[in-house]
């Protein structure tokens, strides 16, 4: 059953062409000289009940615009968005009853109210029955320890506690879809994984559909069974993560360490070394996809095994310098995504 459906959705924004200088500014006041920018350009998408979809793309790709259309605060220029079979922007309030939204750094809770009181107000707003409310709280208790949050006003909470509270609040009325916008931004590692576990738990218990926009590939790896990548308003990729890795199956990362002690080398000299190495490799090997970067004392060489032989590269480097340690890695989701953003190719 499809819970969200986007059918050839386009959204344009009208932007005034600004002129320079004061005279230009005055002319702008009366100007009708607009250009049109496609924030979302012909995107179609079907999302089933219970899916966790990572909605990814670089800044300005059109993610927020899509989410705004799905949540009913923006109307598409053409095409159609259906959430639970209805167009959300035709009836914002009806749609809002059945969704939850979380912004990583913008708490939607009442600043001065303790969490339990915020929940009581939300219970009223969403008209949650006593039984459903109690069931949901029991589920929360079984998944995570929220005792220390319960009596705390939101303003006294740490960022992690606040984000967790916002997530709790978003699921409270058991919505069919929850939109999470950078939910773990600025959080420490342990809080991140705690929140990821909690979201996973809720998703499996309540079959809540979750749309996650993030730049944190840790979130994506931990949560999403499917990812959609967009850039410049167009859909670049829509499939599960495994297939994404397969697309780049021939890519390997060779990690090299030139020193006995990893902590010995400082970042700047490593960076210079990496740049130098990249230049040399590109001169001597045909693969134009080779990139060299620095990762905590290691030098990472990303290469496509279809183009170059791993052994040859290793021999080449060893002929110049002594290698102390070497590791081979599959390409990470983060690197894959980066390649897609940079390449801009539709897979």
């Amino acid at each position: 059953m499809e819970i969200i459906e986007l059918i050839n959705v386009k959204r344009e924004f009208k932007i005034l062409n600004r002129r320079e200088g004061i005279a230009g500014g005055i002319k702008d006041l009366f100007s009708r000289d607009y250009r049109y920018l496609s924030a979302v350009d012909d995107i179609s998408l079907k999302i089933k009940k219970g899916e966790i979809v990572g909605y990814l793309g670089p800044n300005g790709a059109g993610k927020s615009t899509t989410i705004k259309m799905m949540t009913g605060i923006l109307e598409p220029t053409s095409g159609k968005v259906l959430v639970n079979g209805k167009e959300p922007y035709r009836n914002r309030i009806e749609n809002a009853q059945d969704i939850g939204v979380v912004f990583g750094q913008r708490s939607q809770l009442w600043w001065s109210l303790p969490l339990k009181e915020s929940f009581k107000v939300l219970k009223e707003i969403y008209q949650v029955s006593d039984k459903d409310y109690k069931d949901m709280l029991d589920l929360y208790m079984s998944l995570i320890d929220i005792k220390n949050l319960w009596d705390k006003p939101v303003r006294q909470m740490s960022l992690g506690q606040r984000t967790l509270s916002d997530i709790l609040a978003a699921f409270l009325h058991n919505p069919s879809v929850v939109y999470l916008d950078e939910p773990t931004i600025g959080l420490d590692v342990s809080m991140k994984s705690k929140i990821q576990e909690f979201i996973k738990g809720l998703n499996s218990q309540k079959a809540t559909t979750i749309i996650l926009t993030t730049h944190d590939m840790g979130d994506v790896d931990a949560l999403c069974n499917r990812i959609v990548i967009i850039d410049k308003g167009k859909k670049l990729y829509d499939d599960n993560i495994e297939n994404l890795h397969k697309m780049f199956g021939m890519y390997r990362i060779m990690k090299i360490c030139f020193s006995k002690d990893v902590g010995e080398l400082d970042y700047d000299s490593l960076k210079d070394k990496a740049a130098e190495l990249e230049k040399e490799l590109q001169e001597n090997f045909s693969g134009d996809d080779m990139t060299v970067s620095v990762d905590e004392g290691w030098i990472d060489i990303l290469m496509n095994e279809e183009d170059v032989s791993l052994m040859e590269v290793m021999n080449f480097i060893q002929s110049k310098q002594h290698i102390y340690n070497i590791k081979l890695e599959e390409i990470s989701t983060e690197k894959v995504i980066k390649k897609i953003y940079e390449g801009g190719t539709i897979l």
């Binding site: 705004k68 949540t71 605060i73 914002r92 309030i93 009806e94 809002a96 009853q97 969704i99 939850g100 939204v101 912004f103 913008r106 708490s107 939607q108 707003i125 969403y126």
Partner: peptide, 12 residues
């Protein structure tokens, strides 16, 4: 841009 956070409740 924080105003957006007010737009998702099913009330006026």
């Amino acid at each position: 841009g924080d105003f957006i956070k007010y737009c998702f409740r099913p009330i006026d």
